[in-house]
């Protein structure tokens, strides 16, 4: 009983998220520049995967093209660098990503199931190749970005976005809006029949889930100090997001955090010494989780809790 009532007040969740983020940020800066970059990557993946989860985790429409938001944000920030100040261009990058999602939402969201999955992927690649074509036509295949902010500054911002994304996923999950999205996942036709405004909910969540990745893309392009279309629209980013969400468990705000921690831990162990082995293991883990634990690590934890509670009573 006490446990159930505790999960109904949001204060512990908010406090845990904030304290966790502040601890990781200060600890990583204290431990030096290597760990600052590790923490930056961690928060980047958390922010991206939480945003993905906001739409795909809740509605069950798996997007394999989330990198498009990241890339659009990065493109806007890189092309306006030194013209528009960063405090303005980064939110604009998020806005541009959101507007793009809003524009394509209606036609794209009519497509369902596996067609939707491959369509999102194809759309992201299409945008990538169009921008690549534009850049090469204007003779700007890559742009150097001198005078970008320090890694610590970027870390604060990306960490803040990760916290915001986590809290959004958490609160949307508890809200009426979230219940509507869950209804879409369970049975879209039935939900529509009983009066859930299915299309409006889907479009809204789709657009909202693009905003934070757009801003993250803008910030992360500052980190790499040069901009290259192929790099910021790399489909591996979309695939990594989906893999983390599946391994961690979508539809629960703790899932993406676990997934990001897991993937980053694996990357720390293997990335520099055996990058291929890292990808092989990642692929095997993805297969394993889809087959044996479709609700991810968070699902496993919940199941264990439930069964131990069952034994106790």
């Amino acid at each position: 009983m006490t446990k159930a009532s505790m999960t109904h007040t949001p204060i512990p969740a908010i406090a845990a998220t904030l304290i966790g983020a502040i601890l990781i940020v200060s600890l990583s800066i204290f431990m030096g520049s290597y760990w600052t970059v590790v923490a930056l990557n961690l928060f980047m993946w958390i922010a991206l995967t939480q945003s993905w989860s906001l739409f795909s985790g809740m509605t069950g429409y798996i997007s394999l093209g989330h990198v498009v938001a990241y890339g659009i944000g990065a493109y806007l920030v890189a092309t306006t660098f030194k013209i528009i100040p960063l405090w303005l261009s980064i939110p604009l990058g998020g806005l541009a990503a959101g507007v793009f999602a809003l524009i394509v939402a209606i036609p794209v969201l009519r497509v369902r199931g596996p067609y939707f999955v491959i369509l999102t992927f194809g759309l992201a690649e299409l945008v990538k190749f169009i921008l690549l074509y534009t850049e090469t036509t204007f003779g700007k295949s890559s742009r150097l970005l001198f005078g970008a902010p320090k890694t610590e500054t970027l870390l604060y911002w990306v960490a803040a976005l990760a916290v915001v994304a986590t809290l959004i996923t958490y609160f949307v999950g508890r809200s009426r809006f979230g219940k509507g999205l869950a209804a879409v996942r369970e049975d879209e036709t039935a939900a529509e029949t009983v009066g859930v405004p299915v299309t409006r909910l889907k479009v809204l969540a789709f657009a909202a889930s693009a905003v934070i990745p757009g801003m993250v893309g803008g910030l992360m392009t500052m980190r790499s100090t040069y901009f290259d279309v192929l790099q910021v629209f790399n489909p591996t980013i979309s695939f990594s997001i989906v893999t983390m969400a599946i391994i961690g468990g979508a539809g629960d705000a703790r899932g993406p955090i676990l997934g990001a921690l897991f993937m980053l831990g694996l990357a720390e162990l293997l990335w520099s010494t055996a990058p291929q082995l890292y990808f092989i293991l990642l692929g095997l883990f993805l297969i394993g989780f889809v087959l044996f634990a479709p609700n991810g690590m968070i699902g496993l934890i919940k199941r264990r809790k439930r069964s131990s509670a069952g034994v106790a009573s």
Partner: peptide
Amino acid sequence: LLFFGVSVV
């Protein structure tokens, strides 16, 4: 998703 894993591997 499974074939994606297979592809990466």
